[in-house]
Design a binder for these strands. Structure first.
Lengths: 300, 300
DNA sequence: TAAAAATACTCCATAGGTATTTTAT
DNA sequence: ATAAAATACCTATGGAGTATTTTTA
């Protein structure tokens, strides 16, 4: 069996069926009729000499063999996508479209401050922005569903390349008039456990804040979003750590800076190490460094 | 432009043209007529929106864009090859064919001692054996021209995975009756520079021997093959270091073992880190460990 | 002028569509 | 009974072939 016999289209079909668990849905996604897709999958299985799916009219499961084969098909399609990316790269950076997502505690505060500057550097670029949690973002990145992400260092995954953009200090947000706000020497460690507000588990900011300044206390209260957290502070529930860019002009909240270099997180741009558009990402990182907003320290 | 529009066959055509620098030769390799290949390349260039080749009837050069695009096409084809490998893998280990090469100072002495054992474990496997220098072997491996290689540790390339098979001691080969052969305490370092024979530069064995036991001396004499080196020893030209498996029953040569764990090289099986047949390679490595011939120390 | 690539055209293999049947719950 | 996959059959796109022309060293 020869590689040239394979068609990328067929691989897309198989991957779609595996992902959606249904021929009809896969046919829909691939913009072909269900019978066409059926026969193509059949031919593919014949060519590969292996059953990919066990199907009855009611249930469709991927065979054990199919799992590893479809995993490999994904790799092929990812590389094929890279080829197309390289092509449009030739005409303009990132081929005119970049899917960029940031961690939720950064994106809403950061994107608005750099979008205009990015537009100036990449006038034709259509940015597709998003937010999420670190694991979801890196997962989507590795799957090829995203082109790049903005997350907090360190990035451990060997499949990812990254470039540091800036260091973002943590500020302490306290209810207006709270003692910790006026007495700067008090700081985070001087707070009672019940005064410490934190994000729910799973937010990378929580991990960063804990790593930088605190342990989890049994009495600590939690919130699921940074905005909610700030409202809780304004309501006098206690104090919390807030990344500098997320600090606003909320009525009822005072922000105090914390002394010490460790009270900060480093934001990096990350992309797939296998992505051939390396120089383009390096250029983007430099541009983002140049655009570093007030309140953070650009990473050289 | 959609990935499904691309055909692996077209990518093979483009890669063949780039490699052979000629449409006629590429058409020949791809078993199509020259006009067919011409129009397919033309369509591919149109689809990609980029010229791959600048061609006149006399000269054909790959455009700068074409270089990076074809590099990417190679990656796609490599992954596609992996898919096929995985398929035949399903029926039998390594899909019935394994291209395995070893460094020249190992292969001729090692292969004969393990082939029978391999045949027992992989009765259907058709082994394609070869020899070469480390750099050539790893290059061919990374290009996809080989499936696995047997080389000396360490393997630095991050694109390669490896598993240690055994430690092979170096023996000192001396002319029969030479003082070093009888006086074991003399050893390699006790030799005169002019008595030290080495392989020419470029042989990994030379590097290993030098790293293990010696520096290069200006007066040292060299040979291009291990066999020649042994003949030189038999002719009384001097002594040399010989890996244990290469030590034979040559008339006129005495072998003395050297004390010390550092007088040895470690042979590893290496394959592409991206090769999806990881377990199969691990199994092969274990089998080879079990088959370690006398004179070497199996790596657990 | 000779060798290589491009063009013109013809053919047919096959992907895809519609209509229908089979199958499992 | 119903929803999903498979089958039958037809159409048409486009890949491959042969013959020929164009181009340049």
């Amino acid at each position: 069996m020869n590689v040239s016999g394979l068609s990328l289209r067929d691989l897309e079909y198989a991957v779609a069926v595996a992902e959606l668990g249904s021929f009809v849905k896969a046919a829909e996604r691939c913009h072909v009729s269900q019978p066409s897709l059926s026969v193509q999958i059949g031919k593919l299985e014949a060519r590969l000499g292996a059953l990919l799916f066990e199907r009855t009219t009611r249930r469709l499961i991927v065979t054990p063999q199919g799992r590893v084969l479809i995993e490999q098909m994904r790799r092929i399609l990812l590389e094929a996508g890279n080829l197309l990316a390289l092509c449009s790269e030739a005409t303009q950076p990132f081929g005119g479209a970049l899917r960029l997502s940031a961690i939720a505690t950064l994106g809403p505060y950061y994107f608005p401050r750099v979008l205009q500057g990015l537009r100036a550097r990449y006038p034709e670029l259509s940015l597709v922005l998003g937010e999420g949690r670190t694991d979801d973002l890196t997962g989507a990145l590795l799957r090829g569903d995203l082109d790049a992400v903005l997350v907090a260092a360190p990035i451990e995954d060997p499949g990812l390349a990254s470039a540091a953009l800036f260091h973002e200090p943590f500020l302490m947000a306290c209810p207006k008039g709270h003692s910790a706000a006026s007495r700067k020497d008090l700081g985070w460690s001087g707070l009672q456990p019940r005064e410490r507000l934190l994000l729910e588990e799973g937010h990378c900011l929580r991990d960063q804040a804990i790593a930088a300044c605190a342990e989890v206390h049994p009495g600590a209260r939690h919130a699921t979003s940074l905005e909610t957290l700030k409202y809780m502070v304004a309501a006098g529930e206690g104090c919390t750590l807030v990344p500098a860019l997320a600090a606003g002009q909320e009525a009822g909240v005072d922000y105090a800076s914390l002394r010490g270099a460790e009270y900060r997180r480093t934001i990096v741009l990350a992309w797939r190490a296998s992505d051939p558009r390396n120089e383009a990402f390096a250029d983007l990182a430099q541009r983002l460094r140049d655009l570093s907003p007030d309140g953070v320290e650009s990473a050289s």
